[in-house]
């Protein structure tokens, strides 16, 4: 008996319910008179029934599933710490190589180090938010504004640092609390803010 000329693909698509209504109806017409294709459809349907049965047995671990969100935020926090650390390290490595390069000329080393330090200090101690005060504002108001900004900045730092250092988000409620505390934290912006402050501290200590 000659094999049917229709491609096996049709039988696969039919068994997998991938044919359009028109295609499906046309193929069903063909099936009425073709034992080859009937056999193929039956065989592929069996394959699908078997794999469906086997794959349905795969179940998701409830505990792991419940902790996904928490672990994603942990992962985000860990990366911020990582990038912060590597930034600080890169900064010092950079400084070191700069110093080594000028080892032979002690005088120029000193001068360049001082310049580097001065430049870095200048850059690092730039206020995060530039004050926009008009000349007419009194000195008192200016001081008050500085004061408020400082408080706000320290508060933010404390919050973020607490968030990042916290390794023990064991419960969902803990996660919720942490998230409440850091409401409004844009995680994408955290590295910049953080590395700024930490680097400043490290540099200040180092000198």
């Amino acid at each position: 008996m000659p094999k049917c000329k229709k491609s096996e693909g049709q039988a696969i698509d039919y068994a997998s319910k991938l044919l359009s209504t028109t295609e499906g109806e046309a193929f069903e017409q063909h099936l009425k008179n073709c034992s080859d294709c009937n056999q193929a459809v039956e065989s592929f349907t069996t394959v699908l029934n078997l794999t469906d049965m086997a794959e349905k047995e795969v179940t998701l671990p409830e505990v792991a599933l419940r902790d996904i969100e928490m672990n994603v935020y942990k992962r985000l926090a860990a990366t911020q710490e990582e990038s912060l650390f590597s930034r600080v390290r890169a900064y010092f490595a950079n400084l070191e190589s700069l110093l080594q390069w000028h080892k032979t000329a002690a005088a120029s080393t000193l001068v360049i180090s001082l310049i580097t330090a001065a430049v870095l200090f200048g850059e690092l101690y730039q206020p995060e938010v530039r004050l926009q005060l008009t000349e007419s504002q009194s000195a008192d108001a200016r001081i008050e504004q500085y004061f408020q900004q400082d408080i706000q900045r320290h508060l933010d730092d404390a919050m973020i640092t607490h968030h990042l250092r916290n390794d023990a988000w064991e419960t969902e409620s803990h996660l919720e609390r942490v998230k409440e505390q850091t409401q409004g934290t844009n995680w994408m912006k955290v590295p910049q803010t953080l590395s700024f402050n930490k680097t400043t501290n490290e540099v200040a200590k180092g000198y």
Binding site: V58, P61, A64, L65
Partner: peptide
């Protein structure tokens, strides 16, 4: 998370790895 997790579990057939990659996907 369930959809991604189950897709990954079927792809790698290992709970821990599937969980890690799920976290990585959302990260």
């Amino acid at each position: 998370k369930s959809k991604i997790f189950s897709y990954l579990l079927r792809s790698v057939r290992n709970y821990e790895d599937a969980e890690d990659i799920t976290i990585e996907v959302f990260f």
